[in-house]
Simulated assay, not measured.
Amino acid sequence: MTQGNRMDDRNADKVVVIGPERWLEHARRFSDFTHLQESVFATAMADRTRSELEHVVIERSGMMRAAAIVRIHHVPIGRDIAYINGGPLMLLKEAGSSPPVEDILAALRSEYQVRRGCLLYIQPTITSFMEIDDLQGQILAGGFEPDASRRRYRTILIRTDASIEVMRQSLHGKWRNSLKKAESSGLEIEDDDSPEMLARVDPLFSDLVQQKSFKTLMPSGTFTSLQWSDGRSPVLRAAVASLEGTDVACLLYGMHGLGAIYLVGASGADGRRINASYLLQWHVIRRCHDAGVRWYDLGGIDTDDNPDVYRFKDRMGGKKVELPGQWRAMGGGVRGLLTRSLVRLHLRRNARITGRSIR
């Protein structure tokens, strides 16, 4: 790896470390840039998992072709783990064509698996899968395989580039009736990316966690504590429904380039009574449409352990999608097998994160 200086072979893709202060200007050039590759959010996640972060770009002849925030977890026994969640970013807006996925993955393997001896895991965004032809085949050709120790990612996608009339007609009749009730209830919707708006998510979300007793990687106060250098998140937004001046429901979502994703939703008793969550979801769908976003990912489904939430999402008229949740670089030898065994034990000890939590 180089620290900004160039290697002699200018025809090879290489991994270059950049400072976190330069990350946003690079990441914003990608259509698949999400909250998972947002520096402040990734730092908060790294702190909770006791990992280190590296901000890197993959370039050739001085031209950026991909980028990633790499989370590195040091393992006392076995090999360190390098993990790219929500990346690598590959849909460069000005490129005009699909990226050389195999070359990008080869550069990452060369740096982290070969040179440093890490186990390397990646989890590209749903937007990448939707926009890059045969991405799964290209990932396999790039030397990665689905990680059988992790659950496959099942979700529902809503095409938000259709007309408002078509999207509303696609809603299940019962869902549409619940939406009509919410629309006539006098709710006011506010939507913003400011820290003040994100902080309004915390109380409702914390109440939900306590009531439902589910595990989450983002504990109470998380959204209040996130601080961006320019005062606003580049990808996270909060929509809050209020009734007579009191917040009754909230929805946190990420919006980026070609896609958006539902992250957290919570309603108080008054919000549930008037179906506020229906109005919030419809608000986000319309906002995605107005912003030119193609896909709205409903944030995962679990038909067995969370059937009520699955039914709510299924009635929104989207398309069911199932993809490998995580990919790992092939190979690794005996030490790699040992480390993967330790990782599986760690995953089994942790309570499973539900579909309501942030991934």
Rank of each mutant, 00 (worst) to 15 (best):
A68T: 08
G117P: 12
S128E: 04
P99E: 05
I104T: 07
G96E: 04
D133Y: 12
T125H: 00
A82M: 04
P99H: 11
Y83E: 04
R116Q: 10
D134W: 05
Q136G: 11
F129I: 01
I132P: 07
I126H: 12
C118S: 12
R115K: 14
S128L: 04
P124H: 04
L92A: 06
L108A: 07
L89Y: 12
A68D: 04
Q136C: 04
G78N: 03
Y83W: 12
G87I: 00
G86A: 07
L120M: 14
D80F: 02
R116A: 05
M130N: 15
C118K: 08
L92I: 02
I69W: 08
S98F: 09
Q113I: 09
I132A: 04
G87Q: 01
V75L: 00
I104R: 13
I126S: 10
Q123R: 15
F129P: 08
I122W: 03
L119N: 01
V75C: 00
G117W: 13
H73K: 14
R115P: 05
G87S: 03
I77S: 00
P88V: 00
E131T: 14
S97F: 11
G86P: 01
L92C: 00
I104H: 06
Q136T: 06
E102F: 06
I72G: 03
I77Y: 01
V75E: 02
A82P: 01
G87F: 03
V101C: 10
I126Q: 11
L91Q: 03
H73Y: 13
I77T: 07
N85A: 13
G78T: 08
A68F: 06
L89K: 09
D133T: 14
S110R: 15
T127W: 05
A82D: 01
L105E: 01
Q123V: 14
A82R: 03
A95N: 08
A95M: 15
P88N: 00
L108H: 10
D134C: 10
D103I: 03
S97A: 15
L135Q: 06
Q123I: 10
S110T: 15
L119P: 02
L120G: 11
G117C: 12
H74I: 10
V75Q: 01
Q113M: 13
I126E: 07
G87M: 04
Q113R: 14
Y112A: 11
M90C: 07
L92R: 09
A68P: 12
I77P: 00
D103P: 01
L120D: 09
V70A: 03
T125I: 02
S128I: 01
S97T: 14
C118R: 12
P100Q: 10
I104F: 11
I81S: 00
R116C: 05
Y121F: 15
P100M: 10
P76T: 07
V70C: 02
Q136V: 03
S110D: 15
I84W: 03
A107L: 13
P124R: 11
V114K: 10
V101W: 07
L135F: 01
S110K: 15
E102H: 06
I132F: 01
E111G: 12
Y121W: 13
R115S: 14
D133M: 14
E131R: 11
D134M: 09
P88A: 00
I122A: 08
E111Y: 15
T127D: 12
L135Y: 03
L91W: 05
S98H: 13
G86V: 05
I72N: 07
I122F: 09
P88S: 00
S98N: 13
A106L: 09
A107P: 09
V114R: 12
L91C: 02
L119F: 02
G87A: 01
R115Y: 13
I72M: 09
T125V: 04
